[in-house]
Amino acid sequence: MKVVYHPEKAYSEMYVKFLFSSIIKEIYEAMDLPDEKRLSREIDRLYRAKRLQDVWKLTEKAMEELEEYLAEEEKGTRSEVTQVKNYIYQNYQEELSVDILAEKVYLSPGYLSYIFKQETGMNLNRFIKAFRMDKAKELLENSQKKISQIAKEVGFSNNSYFCRSFREYFGVTPESCRKGTAEYEKMDTEI
């Protein structure tokens, strides 16, 4: 069944889009997602939709994300851990430390480290490093950016430290990774 806007109805297309955009905004706020750019993109997509069915699909997708978020919380995942993970995903290029992250979720650094390890099975610094290394590998394989530029983009201010860390993590140098000349022996650190 194709759903379209009906001009003879009392509600305008813009009003319907406004209502659904408000719903999406509330969903994102309920999930404590700090990603304003993503929310802005979704709202923009909603306002560009030509059919009511497309507006509904975008809203339905946001509701499914909320259901997954709530299910994760129900399983015992603490919202602070989810917030910290989301913050790392969005800000991995910046300086990140246990102190900075603990401040974001109003916990002591020691307690955040403890619950993060309990929930993920990985300590916080190792989680950050694993995420940054995976991003670096992705950039090396899919772009022509200089290695020093990639190092900065993934949060390393020292290029030689980045190269050493990359080699320790993957077992190959960044140059070898870019050339694709070696198999990766990634440690058992899945995010």
Rank of each mutant, 00 (worst) to 15 (best):
Y169F: 12
S108M: 05
K135V: 08
Q90T: 14
D188F: 03
L107Y: 13
F166N: 07
S113D: 10
K135G: 02
F166R: 06
R178Y: 04
Q144L: 07
F131L: 04
G180K: 09
S176C: 01
F116A: 01
L140T: 10
E119M: 05
S148W: 01
E138T: 13
I115M: 12
E168V: 00
R126D: 14
S165D: 14
T173R: 03
E168H: 06
E94F: 09
A130G: 07
S113W: 04
K104A: 04
T120Y: 01
Y87A: 10
I100R: 14
E103C: 03
E103W: 03
I100F: 10
I100A: 10
E185Q: 15
K146H: 10
T120E: 10
M133A: 06
E95H: 10
Q144V: 07
L124V: 11
K152G: 06
R167S: 13
V105S: 03
S97C: 09
E141F: 13
E138A: 12
S143I: 10
A130E: 08
I88V: 14
D134F: 07
N86L: 13
A151C: 04
Y106M: 08
S160D: 08
A130P: 02
K104L: 05
A182P: 01
V98T: 12
F170A: 05
Y184H: 12
M187W: 02
L101F: 02
N158Q: 14
E168S: 11
F131E: 00
A102W: 04
Q83W: 08
I150T: 11
S160W: 04
V172G: 02
V84D: 06
L96H: 10
D99I: 03
T120F: 01
K145Y: 15
